Simulated scan of single mutants.
Amino acid sequence: MSAALAARASRRLTRDRPAMTALATLLGIALACLIGPFLTGHPPERIYPDFVRVGPSLAAHPTEAELRPALTRLAFRMRLSLDDAARDGDRVRLRLSAEKPIDARVLRLLPRSALFGPPTVLDRADDGRTLVVAAPVRKLFFFLGTDTLGRDLLTRCLAAGRVSLLIGLTATLAALLIGVGYGAVSGMAGGRIDALMMRILDILYALPFVFFVIMLLVFFRAGLWLVLVAVAAVEWLDMARIVRTQTLSLKGRDFFRAAVALGSPPGTILVRHAVPNTLGPIIAAATLLVPRVILLESFLSFLGLGVQEPATSWGVLIAEGARALEAAPWMLAAPAGFLVVTLVALNRLGDGLGAALDPLLSRDPR
Results as ranks from 00 to 15, higher is better:
residue 107 L to H: 03
residue 107 L to W: 04
residue 107 L to Q: 13
residue 107 L to N: 06
residue 109 L to Y: 06
residue 109 L to T: 05
residue 109 L to N: 07
residue 109 L to R: 07
residue 109 L to C: 05
residue 110 L to I: 05
residue 111 P to Q: 09
residue 111 P to V: 14
residue 111 P to S: 00
residue 112 R to K: 08
residue 112 R to C: 01
residue 112 R to W: 09
residue 113 S to Y: 07
residue 113 S to Q: 11
residue 114 A to N: 10
residue 114 A to S: 09
residue 114 A to T: 07
residue 114 A to R: 15
residue 114 A to M: 06
residue 114 A to K: 10
residue 115 L to C: 03
residue 117 G to F: 05
residue 117 G to N: 04
residue 118 P to F: 12
residue 118 P to R: 08
residue 119 P to C: 14
residue 119 P to T: 04
residue 120 T to E: 13
residue 120 T to D: 12
residue 120 T to A: 10
residue 122 L to T: 14
residue 122 L to I: 08
residue 125 A to V: 02
residue 126 D to M: 06
residue 126 D to F: 07
residue 127 D to A: 12
residue 127 D to W: 10
residue 128 G to N: 05
residue 128 G to V: 06
residue 128 G to K: 04
residue 128 G to S: 05
residue 129 R to A: 15
residue 130 T to G: 03
residue 130 T to W: 03
residue 132 V to L: 08
residue 132 V to H: 09
residue 133 V to C: 03
residue 133 V to N: 00
residue 134 A to K: 10
residue 134 A to W: 00
residue 135 A to V: 14
residue 138 R to K: 07
residue 138 R to E: 02
residue 138 R to V: 01
residue 138 R to M: 02
residue 139 K to A: 09
residue 139 K to Y: 01
residue 140 L to C: 05
residue 141 F to R: 01
residue 142 F to V: 04
residue 143 F to Y: 15
residue 143 F to G: 11
residue 143 F to L: 15
residue 143 F to S: 15
residue 144 L to W: 05
residue 144 L to Q: 03
residue 144 L to F: 13
residue 144 L to P: 00
residue 146 T to I: 09
residue 147 D to G: 03
residue 148 T to S: 03
residue 149 L to A: 10
residue 150 G to T: 12
residue 151 R to S: 07
residue 151 R to F: 02
residue 152 D to M: 05
residue 152 D to S: 00
residue 154 L to W: 11
residue 154 L to D: 08
residue 154 L to R: 12
residue 154 L to T: 14
residue 155 T to H: 11
residue 156 R to M: 14
residue 156 R to E: 09
residue 157 C to M: 15
residue 158 L to A: 14
residue 158 L to S: 13
residue 159 A to I: 00
residue 160 A to V: 01
residue 160 A to Y: 00
residue 161 G to Y: 10
residue 161 G to S: 11
residue 163 V to Y: 00
residue 163 V to S: 01
residue 163 V to F: 00
residue 163 V to M: 13
residue 164 S to Q: 11
residue 164 S to G: 04
residue 164 S to C: 13
residue 165 L to Y: 03
residue 165 L to H: 09
residue 166 L to T: 06
residue 166 L to R: 05
residue 166 L to K: 09
residue 166 L to V: 00
